[in-house]
Protein backbone atom coordinates (compact mmCIF):
# COMPACT_ATOMS: atom_id res chain seq x y z
CA UNK A 1 0.00 0.00 0.00
CA UNK A 2 1.24 3.47 -0.81
CA UNK A 3 1.41 6.12 1.85
CA UNK A 4 -1.39 8.60 2.12
CA UNK A 5 -0.10 12.02 1.05
CA UNK A 6 -0.46 14.71 3.71
CA UNK A 7 -3.08 17.43 3.73
CA UNK A 8 -1.57 20.78 2.69
CA UNK A 9 -2.22 24.09 4.40
CA UNK A 10 -2.62 27.23 2.31
CA UNK A 11 0.99 28.32 1.88
CA UNK A 12 2.16 24.75 1.28
CA UNK A 13 -0.58 24.45 -1.29
CA UNK A 14 0.58 27.63 -3.09
CA UNK A 15 4.16 26.38 -3.18
CA UNK A 16 3.06 23.00 -4.50
CA UNK A 17 0.91 24.64 -7.21
CA UNK A 18 3.97 26.56 -8.41
CA UNK A 19 6.08 23.41 -8.38
CA UNK A 20 3.45 21.40 -10.23
CA UNK A 21 3.54 24.03 -12.96
CA UNK A 22 7.26 23.58 -13.51
CA UNK A 23 8.30 20.12 -12.17
CA UNK A 24 11.60 21.31 -10.74
CA UNK A 25 12.47 24.60 -9.10
CA UNK A 26 14.79 26.26 -6.64
CA UNK A 27 13.62 28.13 -3.56
CA UNK A 28 14.50 31.42 -5.23
CA UNK A 29 12.32 30.66 -8.29
CA UNK A 30 9.32 29.75 -6.17
CA UNK A 31 9.83 32.83 -3.99
CA UNK A 32 9.86 35.10 -7.03
CA UNK A 33 6.79 33.41 -8.54
CA UNK A 34 4.86 33.74 -5.27
CA UNK A 35 5.84 37.36 -4.77
CA UNK A 36 5.00 38.21 -8.36
CA UNK A 37 1.48 36.90 -7.89
CA UNK A 38 0.53 38.44 -4.57
CA UNK A 39 0.92 41.82 -2.96
CA UNK A 40 2.32 40.25 0.16
CA UNK A 41 6.04 39.78 -0.08
CA UNK A 42 7.37 36.57 1.47
CA UNK A 43 10.78 36.16 2.98
CA UNK A 44 13.27 33.76 1.46
CA UNK A 45 13.53 31.84 4.71
CA UNK A 46 9.74 31.36 4.91
CA UNK A 47 9.59 29.72 1.51
CA UNK A 48 12.72 27.69 2.26
CA UNK A 49 11.19 26.39 5.49
CA UNK A 50 7.97 25.43 3.72
CA UNK A 51 9.87 23.59 1.01
CA UNK A 52 12.06 21.79 3.54
CA UNK A 53 8.90 20.72 5.34
CA UNK A 54 7.32 19.49 2.08
CA UNK A 55 10.52 17.52 1.55
CA UNK A 56 10.14 15.97 5.03
CA UNK A 57 6.53 15.12 4.26
CA UNK A 58 7.59 13.29 1.13
CA UNK A 59 5.88 15.69 -1.28
CA UNK A 60 9.21 16.91 -2.71
CA UNK A 61 12.69 15.52 -3.22
CA UNK A 62 15.75 17.68 -2.92
CA UNK A 63 18.75 17.39 -5.19
CA UNK A 64 21.91 19.36 -4.73
CA UNK A 65 23.36 20.83 -7.87
CA UNK A 66 26.58 22.75 -7.35
CA UNK A 67 25.60 25.09 -4.52
CA UNK A 68 21.83 25.28 -4.95
CA UNK A 69 19.06 22.89 -3.94
CA UNK A 70 16.70 21.88 -6.69
CA UNK A 71 13.32 20.54 -5.64
CA UNK A 72 11.22 18.12 -7.61
CA UNK A 73 7.63 16.95 -6.95
CA UNK A 74 7.09 13.29 -6.09
CA UNK A 75 3.43 13.12 -7.14
CA UNK A 76 1.66 14.79 -10.02
CA UNK A 77 -1.22 17.14 -9.20
CA UNK A 78 -3.79 14.57 -10.33
CA UNK A 79 -2.15 11.73 -8.44
CA UNK A 80 -2.11 13.83 -5.33
CA UNK A 81 -5.80 14.72 -5.69
CA UNK A 82 -6.75 11.10 -6.30
CA UNK A 83 -4.70 9.79 -3.42
CA UNK A 84 -6.27 12.39 -1.12
CA UNK A 85 -9.78 11.45 -2.23
CA UNK A 86 -9.04 7.80 -1.66
CA UNK A 87 -7.63 8.54 1.76
CA UNK A 88 -10.72 10.57 2.59
CA UNK A 89 -13.13 7.75 1.76
CA UNK A 90 -11.05 5.41 3.89
CA UNK A 91 -10.98 7.98 6.67
CA UNK A 92 -14.75 8.51 6.43
CA UNK A 93 -15.31 4.79 6.70
CA UNK A 94 -13.03 4.61 9.73
CA UNK A 95 -14.50 7.69 11.33
CA UNK A 96 -18.19 6.98 10.92
CA UNK A 97 -18.08 3.23 10.92
CA UNK A 98 -21.51 1.75 11.36
CA UNK A 99 -23.09 4.83 12.80
CA UNK A 100 -23.50 6.93 9.69
CA UNK A 101 -22.70 4.61 6.83
CA UNK A 102 -24.48 1.36 6.13
CA UNK A 103 -21.78 -0.78 4.58
CA UNK A 104 -22.02 -3.64 2.26
CA UNK A 105 -19.23 -5.24 4.30
CA UNK A 106 -17.42 -4.14 7.39
CA UNK A 107 -16.34 -7.13 9.44
CA UNK A 108 -12.82 -8.26 9.95
CA UNK A 109 -13.56 -11.94 9.30
CA UNK A 110 -11.17 -13.42 6.80
CA UNK A 111 -12.72 -15.68 4.22
CA UNK A 112 -11.83 -19.29 5.02
CA UNK A 113 -10.99 -21.63 2.12
CA UNK A 114 -14.11 -23.74 2.59
CA UNK A 115 -16.50 -20.82 2.37
CA UNK A 116 -14.49 -19.35 -0.47
CA UNK A 117 -14.86 -22.54 -2.50
CA UNK A 118 -18.60 -22.71 -1.81
CA UNK A 119 -19.02 -19.06 -2.83
CA UNK A 120 -17.05 -19.66 -5.99
CA UNK A 121 -19.30 -22.57 -6.92
CA UNK A 122 -22.36 -20.41 -6.35
CA UNK A 123 -20.89 -17.45 -8.24
CA UNK A 124 -20.21 -19.53 -11.35
CA UNK A 125 -23.63 -21.17 -11.33
CA UNK A 126 -25.29 -18.50 -13.44
Amino acid sequence: MTMTPPQLHSLEREVMEELWDRDTATVREILEALNARSEKSRAYTTVMTIMRRLDDKGMLVREREQRTDIYRTTLSRDDYAQARARAQIGALVDEFGDVALLHFARQVDALDPERRAALERLAHKQ
Binding site: F104, A105, R106, Q107, V108, D109, L111, D112, R115, R116, A118, L119, E120, L122, A123, H124, K125, Q126
Partner: peptide, 24 residues
Protein backbone atom coordinates in the same frame (compact mmCIF):
# COMPACT_ATOMS: atom_id res chain seq x y z
CA UNK B 1 -29.41 -12.28 -6.81
CA UNK B 2 -27.57 -15.14 -5.04
CA UNK B 3 -25.01 -15.88 -7.69
CA UNK B 4 -24.07 -12.24 -8.21
CA UNK B 5 -23.90 -11.71 -4.47
CA UNK B 6 -21.59 -14.71 -4.06
CA UNK B 7 -19.22 -13.20 -6.61
CA UNK B 8 -19.33 -9.81 -4.90
CA UNK B 9 -18.61 -11.40 -1.51
CA UNK B 10 -15.52 -13.01 -2.99
CA UNK B 11 -14.17 -9.65 -4.09
CA UNK B 12 -15.30 -7.35 -1.32
CA UNK B 13 -13.44 -8.07 1.89
CA UNK B 14 -15.12 -8.21 5.23
CA UNK B 15 -18.41 -10.02 4.71
CA UNK B 16 -19.26 -11.85 7.93
CA UNK B 17 -19.18 -15.63 8.00
CA UNK B 18 -22.82 -15.65 9.03
CA UNK B 19 -23.88 -13.83 5.86
CA UNK B 20 -21.91 -16.23 3.69
CA UNK B 21 -23.42 -19.22 5.46
CA UNK B 22 -26.88 -17.74 5.04
CA UNK B 23 -26.25 -17.20 1.32
CA UNK B 24 -25.06 -20.78 1.06
Amino acid sequence: DRSGLAGAMLRIDGVSAERIDRLL
